[in-house]
């Protein structure tokens, strides 16, 4: 019970963090048709900016400044990079974002070095929020959850209750028609790209200190983020939300679960000697297979339902 509750909370926290990344990626993809390979790099930038700012003036200003700075960089990238490449088609755009990811990683190497930086959870939030059967739930996890939920609610309100939100929703599917009605669609594209990057930056600010802030963080989370987007369905925000939570829970539960196929089948008398291939597979615990589970899920999804849970177009 205790394992279940704590894993549940941790899984949801991680899932919401994933959604902060995948929501921006999904919005950008639906609107521009570009899968932004550099999206996770903006997450990394968010973490490093937050580290730098929190060293100088503290965590709370960093929480606000770092996402805004990342968003501003995102807008510049769209305005002076992606928009110029756009007229050559989707493949050059894809290559552009791919190159950008490397560029950002190298920049991070140059400025902050190759090893992890000491970006820590602020002292105010390093206590434990409550205890369940003796296991503490850290305050910072609660804080992450709070920020994620606030972000989720504001994203929803902006998209459904404001005029710019309506323009974005309409431009997701009919950009030309929206523009002919007099809306500055290129500017909306820039804002969405910047907004998506700012969300990724925010995820970096609150995730960088909970996980680890190092130059490999973009690659490791980026891969999971693509799993989420494929699983949820390219271009579907609701799908991305469900898939984020699913992956978050799956990974958290799997890590803490040391069952194996061998144990599952032992009562049925099916077993294989260790040392053979099947024997190894039978003895593999779920927790050691945890990192690979999301990818297994993605491959299965691509085979049986390539459009994803709620996607409308084929991958």
């Amino acid at each position: 019970m205790e394992f279940f509750l704590i894993s549940m909370l941790n899984g949801v926290t991680y899932g919401l963090l994933l959604f902060m990344l995948s929501s921006g990626l999904t919005l950008i993809f639906s609107m521009m048709g570009v899968l932004n390979f550099a999206h996770a790099s903006f997450y990394m930038l968010g973490a490093y900016f937050a580290y730098q700012i929190s060293v100088k003036i503290g965590f709370w200003p960093a929480l606000v400044i770092a996402p805004l700075a990342v968003g501003a960089i995102g807008m510049l990238v769209e305005r002076y990079g992606l928009r110029k490449v756009h007229k050559y088609g989707h493949v050059p755009e894809l290559l552009f974002t791919f190159g950008l990811a490397y560029l950002i990683e190298e920049a991070v190497h140059l400025i902050w070095g190759r090893s992890a930086v000491d970006y820590r959870v602020p002292a105010e939030l390093s206590g434990s929020l409550f205890k369940i059967y003796g296991t503490a739930f850290p305050e910072y996890r609660g804080f992450m959850m709070l920020v994620s939920v606030l972000m989720l609610v504001s994203l929803y309100l902006v998209l459904t209750r404001t005029r710019i939100g309506l323009v974005i929703q309409a431009a997701l599917t009919h950009p030309d028609t929206v523009e002919a009605l007099g809306h500055n669609v290129p500017r909306v594209f820039m804002l969405v790209f910047g907004g998506g990057c700012a969300l990724a930056g925010l995820a970096g600010v609150i995730g960088g200190n909970a996980l680890v802030t190092e130059p490999g963080m973009a690659l490791s989370l980026g891969a999971i983020m693509f799993v989420v987007v494929v699983l949820g369905g390219l271009g579907s925000l609701a799908g991305a939300f469900i898939a984020s939570l699913l992956i978050g829970l799956l990974q958290t539960f799997a890590v803490g679960f040391d069952g194996s196929l061998g144990r599952l089948f032992a009562p049925l008398g099916i077993s294989f000697p260790s040392g053979t291939f099947l024997g190894e597979l039978w003895g593999l615990t779920i927790s050691s297979a945890a990192p690979v589970l999301p990818y297994v899920l993605m491959v299965l999804m691509l085979i049986f339902r390539p459009r994803g849970l709620l996607g409308t177009r084929d991958v």
Partner: peptide, 24 residues
């Protein structure tokens, strides 16, 4: 000029194929 600028000059365009925004 770009389409949105043309629209602001006072030109309206009604696309064919009933190009409404279906989810709104």
């Amino acid at each position: 000029l770009k389409a949105y600028q043309v629209a602001h000059k006072g030109l309206g365009y009604v696309p064919e194929n009933r190009d409404i925004f279906p989810t709104l």
